[in-house]
Amino acid sequence: MATPASAVLLRNEIEARIPAAFSFCTRQHRGSIPTGIASIDDAVRGIPLHALTEICGSNLASSGKTSLVMSLLARATQQDNFCALIDGQDAFDPASAEASGVNLSRLLWVRCGKTKQKLKPLEQAFKVADMLVQSAGFGLIVVDLCDFPERLVRRVPHTSWFRFSRVVERQPTALVFLEREPHATSCAGLVLSLKSRPAVGKGNLFTQCGMEAGILRTLERKPPQAVRPLFSLRSQWAA
């Protein structure tokens, strides 16, 4: 059995050969893209570049996750970034995006699962995400996995998430996954969970939706559980 003294010797020997073997890798905040929603931007300083972000919300109730991503795309394209949206089940609505302020000429839309291919739609989405992350030049890449059954997304190996986080670490890109539940665990730099509040109407019209964001993980420190940014989104016709 190794004694503490021999463990120290062993450690010293390893450190002599590999100096960074026992040092901690500290993540630094290296820029972000604002979401355009003040309460979220105040709480998390926008969606971080060089990191993987998960935005989660229910698939049955209106959680605001798609609206948040549209607002993020709008901000990113207005800052002259090129963005990509990998649409797992072809749910993207160009009219909503335009109403949110997305510059559509700066957006690449990839519609998965529309033709018979060797790969299944979920595999297509991951493969395309990999290609785009590797190709560089996109400021924001959004992968929409919301409409896939949860059991399929859960089967994605952890190594895939790890690989994405390592690749995007070297790129000035924000990689955002839109899901029902978080899956990337420690590979994610930021995890937001969104919930809906009752919609507000005026006469015969819905004019506003209230939302609540929970911060499950951030890059720098343990997220304060008490901070739950509230925000409201206007309907297109009311805005």
């Binding site: 607002s71 072809d90 749910a91 609505d93 109403a99 919301c146 309907s235 805005a239």
Partner: peptide, 29 residues
Amino acid sequence: SFAVHAFSSEHAVAGLCIERPVVALRKFR
């Protein structure tokens, strides 16, 4: 109804600046 044009980093144009986020629709196709 929508259209899909060829994507090119060369032909991007300036877009409108809209400050207030709106509720987006997820389409079922």
